[in-house]
Design a protein around this nucleic acid. Structure first.
Lengths: 335, 335
DNA sequence: CTGTTAGCGCCTTCAC
DNA sequence: GTGAAGGCGCTAACAG
């Protein structure tokens, strides 16, 4: 049969509770006792039963990652990071796609928390900014960590200074001689959309270039929206010589649209994106873009969440660095 | 406080056990009693406590999806499908990336099963064909469902007739006038690699074209390997007029290599892939490829696994249909 | 620093 | 067709 905590206690010549203390790293155990128990655990190859712990303790050792976002590369990376943090602390990770039936997100979150007895949740954009969800989570007293939330006041989670990243990216375009630089905006629900737009404006301002509203077009982070936006830009009387798309998918869409018009990248128009998803390296030409350390962000979000679960006030917001990657999709401005 | 089964029993005027019977759809409950209990559950908004069930019963209501595969689009889709199947049956899904530390996969699987008390696992390629893992799973008596395993005898899982799909794809190329059709093979560890090669041969045979070994080059499913393989093909004295890459990533790599040589797709060379991952639509030109219903495959694998968990012999192998998608990356053979 | 006693919420077995 | 008692493996609360 299975080896239980009782067996370990007998083997080590102590009580069950002492074994429990050692296992849970609680204080008040003599070092000698601790090592003796650890040896017994080792010898018997004892593994605690997760459900028994959950039932007897008050926590589920379970956190969920909430997402409502079609970008699988991004999600998979974040997921691996969160998973890593969870495994280190013997927590389990549950996935909660809120994809379909987005009408009643709050209801779904509620059901999830109640049914699964979640100890906490990791939020990804754009759920990070769904005020109704945040409020409900607060009411239910469920700790959460947000990845790239729009506002970072008094929150737990991870951010990147995307605004400065874009500013650098625009400076790169300017250094190549570009003056007519267009921007394809992201989806309005994402905080990133605002930061990237602000960074674009910062970059132009740095170079003393006036913002031309005609060069700022709507997108929604999808490949298609990038194509459509670019078609609009190409029809302008004075088309841009460079396009900064708010993410890689839209940048890829921009390149498709440009090619379909018989133009070439970067000879006729330079294009750059944001995120450094695999597609950035997989298209021709490879995209100049900005990398966020996505997996690391997941790991940190997970770690901060677990901190918050243990002690409410020990967790906070951490910032991670970005990298501007110059590849072949940007070149000197054409005449 | 939380509402427990005891409260429901009181509310319905029956014993705990009767409520339990209704909840678990066990027999031996009068219809009238059943409806009465269901009403009480509804009224009290009762939700069973998963850990208590797990502890008292013998199952964990937990299955894991094992993967060792860098393709996030594929995995995310499969995952959504499996998740869907699990949720329908009130099972939980745990993710088990076996990415790093691939040395001791068997050990990791063992640890996972024992620690988490898994009721079963879903296997994705190429773990589906790791005989050591399969053997250990059999020994531990853990049911598993395989997605696209190399051999489907006496197994539980899901398959697609990839061989026939490729045969059709090659027929499409032939119908465009291509005779020198190259193939970039996939990673040797994957069963798919063999089927796709076989389908390629079938297609050539159908058209009465002799297989030219120089036109079959190694790849390993990565973008880079697709580029390298294509460079090799382009250096041939008689380069191919069409390339069938064993997946979309390699096809995208092929297009990059072709563009870098100053050639155009499909004007100079046609390219097609396999899988219909998002990149197939996001590059220029969009890829002719084959779609597998990935999410549905995940769902079915999950469903078959749960069947297997309930009754060992009720589950089996199911086959799902593919779709050949003709897009812009294939065109008439050049002179 | 260590041990004892009660459950956590549900399912099992067996009686009725 | 239904119920009562006992226990799944662990931890909380309280002693010592």
């Amino acid at each position: 049969m299975r080896v239980r905590i009782e067996d370990v206690a007998a083997e080590a010549g102590v009580s069950m509770k002492t074994v429990s203390r050692v296992l849970n790293r609680e204080p008040n155990v003599a070092d000698a006792t601790r090592t003796r128990v650890e040896a017994a655990v080792e010898r018997l190859r004892y593994k605690p039963h997760p459900s028994a712990r959950t039932l007897a303790g008050r926590r589920s050792y379970l956190v969920a990652m909430l997402y409502d976002n079609p970008s699988s590369n991004y999600l998979m990376e974040v997921e691996l990071g969160v998973l890593d943090a969870c495994q280190q602390h013997h927590y389990n990770l549950m996935l909660a796609p809120l994809l379909y039936d987005a009408r009643d997100i709050v209801g779904k979150v509620e059901a999830l928390v109640e049914q699964s007895r979640l100890d906490g949740v990791v939020l990804t954009p754009p759920i990070t900014d769904d005020q109704a969800v945040l409020d409900r989570l607060d009411e239910l007293d469920v700790p959460y960590a947000s990845i790239s939330p729009r506002e970072d006041h008094r929150r737990v989670g991870v951010t990147v200074d995307e605004r400065s990243a874009v500013r650098e990216l625009v400076a790169h375009l300017v250094s190549l001689g570009h003056r007519r630089i267009a921007h394809i905006k992201g989806h309005a629900a994402h905080g990133a959309t605002g930061w990237r737009l602000a960074g674009y404006r910062d970059g132009l301002k740095d170079a003393g270039i006036r913002v031309d509203p005609a060069l700022i077009v709507d997108g929604e982070f999808s490949h298609d929206s990038g194509m459509r936006a670019t078609e609009k830009l190409l029809k302008l009387r004075q088309p841009p010589t460079a396009i900064f798309a708010a993410n890689d998918d839209m940048a890829a869409g921009a390149i498709c649209a440009i090619c379909e018009h018989g133009l070439q990248v970067p000879r006729d128009i330079s294009v750059c994106g944001f995120d450094d998803t695999p597609i950035a390296r997989h298209i021709y030409p490879a995209l100049t873009t900005v990398r966020q350390p996505t997996r690391e962000m997941g790991r940190l979000a997970g770690a901060e969440l677990l901190k918050a679960i243990r002690a409410r006030d020990s967790a906070g917001m951490v910032e991670v660095p970005y990298t501007v990657l110059v590849r072949r999709s940007t070149g000197p401005a054409s005449a």
